[in-house]
Amino acid sequence: MSSPAAVADPAAPTGGPAAGGPGPARPPRWRRALTTLADGWLLLALLVVWEVWARADPSLFFPPLTKVLGEFGSVYLTSDPSTLFLSAGFWDNAGVSLARFLQGWLGAIVVGVAAGLALGRSRVLSRMYDPIVRFFMSMPKVALLPVAVQIFGVTDAMNVFLIFLGTVWIILVNTADGIAGVDESWVRSGRSLRLSRFALFTRVLLPAAAPRILAGIRVSVGTALILMIVSELYATTSGLGYQIVYAERTFAYLEMWAGLVLVALIGIALNGAMSAVERRLLRWERRTGLADL
């Protein structure tokens, strides 16, 4: 493994300011939640700046935050608990978008990890396909958007195709690098236990490569969201991106900003969920201090 790390998400939970060693006992959960809340002061301050700025210098295109939130509430929130307080407008737009996101992204994870395993374990395959895969990884996949529309027309398949194609390479490369970089001692240890090939993959190689694989998947969340929105802005008749561009074209700027807030919240939720999964799966890595290796 002489190649530089293809992706190491700078925000991956490895040895950063937040990485805790096997140090003193952690404070209780509510206490930590409170600390996190208190750490939101800068975010809050920036949002206040938005509000003040927009009020001081009124512009049709740049409304104050409170007005945007009011619009958001009236468009996407209802008082009906049966739909989790979310309106039909929410489910119509966010539901469609998220379905596209999940199909493309999960497909990319399945294909990317499987192909990455093959490339990571086979010297011949990796020598043959490494250059091509890296070529595809550095391609700005969004440029394929016009072609995707040509192939699939304005269908969900077009969005799914673009999301898949845009994320599969980075997952593949990280899986392959992660697998190829698994400490040989672990493999030797597994072999000495006479594990079957399958068990060696599932019990040793995959968990050992998990930090790297998850780093790739985490980066891919952001890329998938970007592509989901771009493809919906470019040509669709439904979804979050469509909602934004439709509001823009009908000069409903408040509604456009409300759509943006919804996209932001979904992005934050997805990234937060991803971090939680990562933390949960990689507890061992943070504790053993192997994170920095």
């Binding site: 295109f61 952001g222 969201l225 970007i226 592509l227 989901m228 929105i229 771009v230 802005l233 979050l240 991106g241 934004i244 561009v245 823009e248 456009m256 900003w257 759509g259 943006l260 996209v263 932001a264 992005g267 934050i268 997805l270 990234n271 937060g272």
Partner: peptide, 10 residues
Amino acid sequence: SVPSSALIPI
């Protein structure tokens, strides 16, 4: 976490 592409119209 905000996908930057959503900002393009704005």
